[in-house]
């Protein structure tokens, strides 16, 4: 087994070109290997010292989040909390404080778990992934990136270097809600993210809804925007609930039956729309890090 520490992005890409796999926080890779899910790759290149990938930047058209940005950064960053709140909601819920301190957004996206927390928010916020390899770079829509549980359309030599998010229209809000059985160290049973833009009369001008843990990948409720447009948030939430339950293709496993997941994903989608619309209307609903003990970002 070989392990190299990349001193620059080019070094990392060169290592990937000859078969190495990237390691950042290691919260999926190392834990998975210890649990026997998959052995550690024979060749690893550490990208955790590539500071150039660890920033959140405002750009002409939206923001760029470096792949090495941690969940802890996301949940308190003012640009994220105020403009892309659903992503802060999700980042704040991942694992434990230590997971959030070391786990990265790029890692979460490329691990492609159908139960990942940042996926549904990124989808409703219109994110795209920036992939780089020694041969060049490309931009990929998330719906094209995630192809199955743990599977992406990225080539093995490609590294996710950033996630780009478009600017937010006025009177927009977003939220991510996750169903979990206990207050810490949890994995989503189901999750839902919503993004909503309001018209001056309080009706919905447009938006999107995406779901976690109810299909082989994060999925978008395709007609959510159309279902919501022109309606007041309550009616929109009810319509989205039915559509979300219909589009879900959940499995039965240790945590829950498919019937329970199909039922609850509708409830959760409606609650996400409700919270997103209230945020869009200016209500302050805090990013919810462990409300039980009052730790974390307050808004």
């Amino acid at each position: 087994m070989s392990f190299a520490i990349a001193g620059s992005l080019d070094e990392a890409l060169a290592a990937l070109a000859v078969g190495a796999r990237p390691i950042a926080g290691g919260t999926d890779l190392v834990v998975g290997a210890r649990q026997g899910k998959a052995p550690l790759p024979a060749s690893l290149v550490a990208i955790d010292r590539l500071d150039e990938l660890a920033h959140i930047e405002s750009r002409d058209r939206g923001i760029r989040i470096g792949a090495m940005v941690t969940h802890s950064q996301l949940m308190i960053d003012q640009m994220i909390v105020s403009g892309y709140t659903a992503l802060a909601d999700a980042a704040a819920l991942v694992g434990s404080p230590s997971t959030r301190n070391i786990g990265t957004l790029g890692g979460n996206v490329m691990n492609a778990s159908p139960a990942m927390d940042t996926g549904a928010p990124l989808m409703v916020l219109g994110a795209v992934a920036q992939l780089r390899s020694a041969r060049g770079s490309r931009t990929v829509e998330l719906s094209d990136l995630w192809t199955g549980p743990g599977q992406t359309s990225a080539e093995t030599e490609e590294l996710c270097v950033a996630i780009d998010l478009p600017p937010r229209p006025a009177r927009s809000g977003s939220a991510y809600v996750r169903l979990e059985y206990r207050r810490a160290m949890e994995i989503a049973i189901v999750g839902a993210a919503a993004s909503v833009t309001l018209a001056d009369d309080g009706t919905i001008l447009g938006g999107a809804v995406a779901l976690s843990a109810v299909a082989p990948t994060i999925i978008e409720v395709d007609d959510a925007g159309a279902l919501m447009t022109g309606h007041l948030p309550d009616a929109a939430a009810a319509a989205v609930a039915t559509a979300a339950s219909d589009v879900a293709r959940p499995i039965s496993d240790l945590r829950a039956s498919d019937t329970y997941r199909r039922h609850t994903v509708g409830v959760m989608a409606a609650r996400a729309v409700d919270a997103a619309a209230r945020r869009a209307a200016g209500e302050e609903i805090g990013v919810p890090v462990n409300r039980a003990i009052g730790v974390g970002a307050s808004r």
Binding site: V177, R182, I285
Partner: peptide, 13 residues
């Protein structure tokens, strides 16, 4: 209250 059901997220109000 002792926190709301549904873990630490916004799940339940």
């Amino acid at each position: 209250r002792a926190g709301l059901p549904g873990g630490s997220g916004l799940t339940t109000e």
